[in-house]
């Protein structure tokens, strides 16, 4: 499903050069739930952004679904993100000016041929899955952290992506709410077969996944 070959990411500024990823080789299969762990600054987010096609590696190649993406145009990358990927962020990143429903509909706006009614229907289904179908008219500021993250999950799954990329999705939540969010993701993985790649610092969360990949200083250590 996802294959990384010799991925390198080097951040260069005038004075320093940071090697965030050093020759990473990684294969993630369809339907896997993978946890990525490692100390702060070891390159986890960098890796996730590269897999998520939000950032490009300095060297190496990535293929998703058998397609080598480094040669893709920006337009094609955007379409790829739209159809195949769904993001969940540590700090939710909901758009405060939009209602819950509008936030969840957002990815479908960038798909041609999806009618307003269809968008709404799919968004409501996604909100149903995360147990928030009664909060559609609320605004993000009117929700708790756990609820916000569930809205973010609904947004990530509304377009039925094959892969969900979650960067510390429970990092800003207390343990109860974190648990809830984790259970939703486990359910998604089990019933829909969605591939999930999750960065976490929490051993409890990581232990619920099928595979833990550990990083240290830009390199995979297991």
């Amino acid at each position: 499903m996802i294959q990384l070959i010799n991925i390198e990411k080097i951040y260069r500024t005038k004075t320093i050069e940071t090697i965030a990823l050093n020759k990473v080789n990684l294969q993630i299969n369809k339907g896997e739930f993978v946890a990525i762990m490692g100390p702060s600054g070891c390159g986890k987010s960098t890796l996730l952004n590269i897999i998520g096609l939000l950032d490009s590696p300095t060297a190496g190649s990535i293929s998703i679904d058998g397609q080598e993406v480094s040669s893709f145009s920006n337009r094609k990358l955007a379409a790829f993100r739209n159809f195949k990927l769904g993001f969940i962020f540590q700090s939710f990143h909901l758009i405060n000016d939009l209602s819950v429903l509008d936030n969840v509909e957002l990815p479908l706006l960038y798909r041609s041929g999806v009618s307003g009614a269809e968008r709404k229907k799919k968004a409501l289904e996604a909100l149903e899955k995360v147990g928030l179908s009664t909060r559609t008219k609320h605004y993000p500021s009117q929700l708790s952290g756990g609820q916000r993250q569930r809205v973010a999950i609904a947004r990530a799954i509304v377009g039925s992506p094959e892969v969900i990329l979650a960067d510390e999705p429970t990092g800003n939540l207390d343990s109860v709410m974190g648990e809830e969010v984790m259970n939703i993701m486990l359910e998604l993985n089990k019933t829909d077969g969605t591939t999930i790649i999750m960065v976490t610092h929490d051993d409890n969360m990581a232990n619920k996944t099928e595979r833990i990949i550990r990083f240290f200083d830009g390199q995979q250590v297991n």
Partner: peptide
């Protein structure tokens, strides 16, 4: 910026 980042993550092209 945040809004732009979110929209791009979910597939908005620069043109849109």
């Amino acid at each position: 910026a945040e809004e732009i980042g979110v929209r791009k993550s979910f597939g908005a092209t620069s043109a849109t």
